[in-house]
């Protein structure tokens, strides 16, 4: 489990035009730059937003990756709910769910 590096990759992708270009041109190379497990690489590649949420990726980072990958707001929220059903409770971090009943 290398949640720190999953989040670091997404942090850089969210803010750094060079990382964004690498995402566009050589995504596998970008993944190889970080110490990631195969499960993490697969979740980033798919993308499996629900699994990334369950892994514990901070929501303030994940919501921008979801947007980058074309998830509009309601689909992003639903992807997290689906992730909880498929993969179980959030494994790490602060962004747990309580009742799961938000605005959408």
């Amino acid at each position: 489990m290398s949640l720190y590096y999953v989040q670091k990759l997404l942090y850089q992708l969210n803010r750094d035009p060079h990382a964004r270009a690498r995402f566009d041109e050589n995504f596998e190379g970008l993944l190889d730059d970080f110490d990631l497990t195969e499960e993490e690489k697969a979740a980033l590649r798919a993308p499996d937003i629900g699994l990334l949420y369950v892994m514990g990726v901070n929501g303030q980072i994940l919501m921008h990756y979801a947007a980058l990958r074309g998830f509009e707001w309601d689909r992003y929220i639903q992807a997290m709910r689906d992730g909880l059903k498929l993969h179980g409770p959030v494994r790490a971090g602060l962004y747990l769910t309580t009742d799961g009943r938000g605005a959408v």
């Binding site: 997290m80 769910t97 309580t98 799961g100 009943r101 938000g102």
Partner: peptide, 10 residues
């Protein structure tokens, strides 16, 4: 607030 979670809006 519980932003960027399934609870967003709580």
């Amino acid at each position: 607030h519980w932003p960027a979670t399934p609870d967003s809006g709580k």
